[in-house]
C-alpha cells in the first residue's frame, strides 16, 4: 500500500516539476537562453495566491487566476526589460548572469515586501481526500488535482504548438530566427509570448507546489526551480515531451529515494541519476540530434 502512495506522491511532485520544466525548455528552445529566474517566478506566483486568499479573502480559484495574470505580466516584463536588450547584442553569458541577477532581485523584492517569516499556505484544493482500500491508502485531493492539471497542460500545449499559428511561429523561431522573420513572423513577439506562457505555467506550478508543501518563503522557488531545470535537461532541453517525462521521473525518483534509501541523500541520488543519464545520452532522453544535410 505504501508503495502506491509513494508512487502517487512521486507523480504528483513530478507533475509540478514537469510544469516548471516546460517553462525552462520552451524559453531555451525559442530564445536559446537559460532563464534562471524562472524558479523565482514560481515563488512570486505562490505569494500572489497567498495574498489574495489571506488578505483579500478571495476564493482559491480567483487567487489562482490572479496569480497566473501576475506571473504572466512579470515574465513578459522580465523578458522585455532585462533580456531583450541583451539577446541580440551581448554574449549568451551576459544573458545568463542577468538571469541570475533577476532571480536575486525577485527574492529580495519579496523579502522586503513580505518579510522572511515562513508563510503557511492554504491548499487551493478544498475537495476531500480519496480513501482507498478501507482507509489504509489515502490519496490527497491536491495530488490528484496536480496530476490532472499536468495532463491538461500537456495536451493543451501540444495542441497549441501544432494547431495554431502562434504555435507554428514558435517552432519556426526555435529553428531559425532570421528565416522566421522572412516568413513574416514577429520574432520578439513570439519570444515574449513564450515567456508569457512559461510564466503563467510557473504560477500554476507555484500554487500547486505550495498546496502540497505549504511552507512559503522568498526562497521557495529556487530548489524546485533547479530540479525542474535538471528535469528539462534530463528529458532533453528544448523538447516538450522531454520536459514532461523528465519532470515526472525526477519526482518519482526523489520520493522513492526519500522513502526507501535516505531522506538526506534523496537530492544527491536524483542528481546522480541525472549525471548517469547524461553520460550515456548527452542530449537527454528526448533530445533532438538531427543531422542536417548541407
Amino acid at each position: 500500500m505504501s508503495f502506491i502512495s509513494y508512487l502517487v506522491n512521486g507523480i504528483s511532485l513530478g507533475s509540478v516539476y514537469a510544469i516548471i520544466a516546460l517553462g525552462y525548455t520552451m524559453v531555451y528552445g525559442i530564445a536559446k537562453m537559460l532563464n534562471f529566474a524562472h524558479g523565482d517566478v514560481i515563488m512570486v506566483g505562490g505569494y500572489a495566491a497567498f495574498t489574495m486568499m489571506m488578505s483579500m479573502n478571495t476564493s482559491p480559484l480567483v487567487a489562482v487566476l490572479v496569480s497566473i495574470v501576475v506571473c504572466t505580466v512579470l515574465g513578459v516584463l522580465i523578458e522585455t526589460i532585462a533580456y531583450r536588450p541583451l539577446l541580440e547584442a551581448a554574449s549568451s553569458l551576459a544573458v545568463l548572469i542577468t538571469a541570475i541577477g533577476v532571480s536575486y532581485f525577485l527574492q529580495n523584492i519579496v523579502l522586503l515586501t513580505f518579510g522572511s517569516s515562513t508563510k503557511s499556505f492554504q491548499s487551493v484544493v478544498t475537495l476531500p481526500n480519496l480513501k482507498l482500500a478501507g482507509g489504509s491508502l489515502v490519496i490527497t485531493s491536491t495530488a490528484i488535482v496536480t496530476i490532472l492539471a499536468c495532463i491538461v497542460i500537456m495536451i493543451a500545449l501540444t495542441l497549441f504548438i501544432n494547431k495554431t499559428k502562434p504555435g507554428q511561429a514558435m517552432l519556426a523561431v526555435s529553428e531559425d530566427k532570421g528565416a522566421a522573420q522572412l516568413m513574416g513572423i514577429n520574432v520578439n513577439g513570439t519570444i515574449a509570448l513564450t515567456f508569457a506562457i512559461g510564466s503563467g505555467l510557473a504560477a500554476i506550478a507555484g500554487v500547486l507546489l505550495c498546496s502540497a508543501y505549504p511552507a512559503l518563503t522568498p526562497y521557495t522557488g529556487s530548489m524546485p526551480g533547479i530540479k525542474a531545470f535538471t528535469a528539462a535537461v534530463f528529458g532533453g532541453i528544448g523538447s516538450i515531451p522531454g520536459a514532461m517525462v523528465g519532470g515526472i521521473l525526477m519526482g518519482v525518483i526523489e520520493i522513492f529515494a526519500k522513502a526507501y534509501i535516505s531522506t538526506q541523500l534523496s537530492d544527491a541520488i536524483v542528481f546522480l541519476i541525472l549525471i548517469i543519464v547524461l553520460l550515456v545520452k548527452p542530449t537527454g532522453l528526448f533530445g533532438k540530434n538531427i543531422q542536417e544535410k548541407v
Partner: peptide, 19 residues
C-alpha cells in the same frame, strides 16, 4: 536555403504563407 530542417516539407510551405 535555411529551410526549417525539423519541420516537414508541407509545414515549411505553410510557414511561407504565414502572413
Amino acid at each position: 536555403r535555411r529551410v526549417f530542417a525539423q519541420l516537414t516539407v508541407y509545414q515549411n510551405l505553410k510557414m511561407g504563407a504565414y502572413t
